[in-house]
Amino acid sequence: MSWKDWIRRYPRMHCAFKHLYSAALAPWCYLHGKPPSLIPRSLRPAFTLGGKVAVWYAYVDGSRSVPLHYDRQRIAEICQRVAAGELGHYGQVDAWLYSALQRYPIAGQRVAVMGSTDQGYGPWYEAIGLHYGARPVTVDYNPIEFEDERLQFMRAPLDWARVEPFDAALSISSFEHDGLGRYGEPLDPEGDLKAMQLMKRLLKPGGRLFLTVPVGKDKVVFNIHRIYGRLRLPLLLQGWTVEDRFGWDEAALDRDTGFGWEPVKYQRGPAGWEVQPLHPGCPEYAPVWVLRNEPA
């Protein structure tokens, strides 16, 4: 067993180690203009819903000054993989998304892809949009260049009053990051909730949002993401009509998923400690919601 596996067996120790690391990074982040590694004390009550939500620390700098560039060959390769039914970075989550898009078609629609980052799979959700006949428009805080006239880019944040409304939108593991600073955006304890309300203005009445966020016992893993349980999930979905859900497990709302990514459980077996994935098939449990933007 590696030292990483050893420390992960003890969640409190692992959490304390990560917190110390983030605290040590704080001066460096400040001096170099990087995303903050700690929640400012003045914002902590808002981030934790008055102390009801736990905070764990883990740091990632996802900000970029140089545009992410996808050439024509890379885009074509990703489109071929999607057409073959392969699963990307989020594993089983993509299978749920395929099922959702088959039941609720987006062919011919102008579809916003909210957030995009290369995690070894390139413009994966843009390619999914193309495969299902949509006209994808990627919206991100960091610049992206596509060598494909079928793909467009818009820099976030968007001014809804100046943007042509979208027919539909994909937000796959995106809004849980908003307001945490990871991608260079300002800190905002309600960044995710505001993003969802802005989405209502960016979508046409009756338009659909295909949404995934990590689900588990409520937690803020700063600056990486939020995990949505019984407290924050209703706030996130407020004002939307839940038309359908794929991969939904009610029990997950009370499940402690640690840092949220690739959670595991340890149990002693005949050969010693055994490691078992908490959610086999997907690195984080994030069901797919199909939400309708009902007219006001």
Results as ranks from 00 to 15, higher is better:
Arg8Lys: 07
Ala134Ser: 04
Asp244Arg: 11
Gln109Met: 09
Val221Thr: 15
Asp256Tyr: 10
Arg44Glu: 12
Asp71Phe: 08
Ile78Cys: 11
Glu149Tyr: 10
His89Met: 10
Pro11Glu: 06
Tyr121Phe: 04
Gly258Phe: 08
Phe246Pro: 02
Glu145Gln: 14
Pro123Asp: 01
Leu233His: 07
Pro157Ala: 13
Ala100Trp: 00
Gly88Met: 04
Arg9Val: 02
Leu253Phe: 11
Arg41Lys: 14
Asn293Gly: 11
Leu25Gly: 03
Arg64His: 09
Arg64Gly: 07
Gly258Val: 05
Arg12Ala: 12
Glu243Ala: 15
Leu202Val: 03
Gly108His: 02
Lys34Phe: 04
Cys29Pro: 05
Pro165Ala: 04
Lys52Arg: 14
Arg232Gly: 01
His32Leu: 13
Asp188Leu: 02
Ile39Gln: 01
Arg110Thr: 02
Asn223Gln: 14
Glu250His: 05
Pro263Phe: 08
Gly206Asp: 09
Gly108Tyr: 00
Lys4Asn: 02
Ala252Lys: 07
Arg226Pro: 10
Pro143Tyr: 11
Thr212Arg: 10
Trp261Gln: 13
Trp289Glu: 06
Val113Ser: 04
Asp167Phe: 08
Pro157His: 11
Ala134Cys: 00
Arg226Glu: 13
Met196Asn: 07
Arg81Gln: 12
Val82Tyr: 05
Gly207Met: 11
Thr257Cys: 12
Ala76Met: 05
Trp56Asn: 07
Thr138Met: 12
Pro11Gly: 06
Glu274Phe: 05
His14Arg: 11
Leu278Gln: 10
Arg135Phe: 06
Lys204Glu: 09
Gly88Asn: 05
Asn142Phe: 10
Ala286Tyr: 07
Val275Cys: 13
Arg245Asn: 05
Lys200Val: 02
Leu209Ile: 04
Arg155Phe: 12
Asp249Trp: 06
Gly260Asp: 08
Glu190Ser: 09
Leu170Ala: 09
Glu250Gln: 06
Ile227Val: 15
Thr257His: 08
Phe175Thr: 15
Val93Cys: 06
Gln197Ala: 06
Asp159Met: 08
Val55Gln: 03
Asp249Lys: 13
Gln152Thr: 15
Gly91Met: 02
His19Lys: 14
Gln197Tyr: 05
Pro11His: 08
Leu193His: 07
Tyr183Leu: 10
Lys219Trp: 13
Gly122Trp: 02
Tyr90Glu: 07
Leu193Lys: 11
Gln197His: 08
Ala251Val: 03
Pro40Glu: 01
Gly206Glu: 07
Phe175Asn: 14
Pro270Asn: 08
Gly269Asn: 10
Arg64Val: 01
Leu203Tyr: 04
Val213Tyr: 14
Gln276Phe: 12
Leu20Trp: 09
Val53Tyr: 13
Pro189Phe: 06
Ile172Pro: 12
Tyr59Asn: 03
Arg230Ser: 13
Arg12Gly: 08
Lys265Gln: 09
Ser116Tyr: 00
Ala169Arg: 05
Pro186Thr: 06
Asp140Pro: 01
Thr138Ser: 14
Pro287Leu: 07
Gly33Tyr: 01
Gly216Gln: 10
Pro67Arg: 05
Val163Met: 12
Ser116Arg: 00
Tyr125Gly: 11
Cys29Ile: 06
Gly272Glu: 10
Gly269Val: 09
Val111Trp: 01
Trp6Ile: 08
Arg74Thr: 12
Arg12Glu: 13
Leu101Met: 03
Glu294Gly: 15
Arg8Thr: 02
Tyr59Val: 01
His32Gly: 02
Ile224Phe: 15
Leu198Cys: 13
Asp178Arg: 13
Pro136Gly: 09
Leu202Lys: 06
Asp159Gln: 10
Gly51Cys: 01
Ser173Pro: 00
Pro287Thr: 03
Cys15Gln: 15
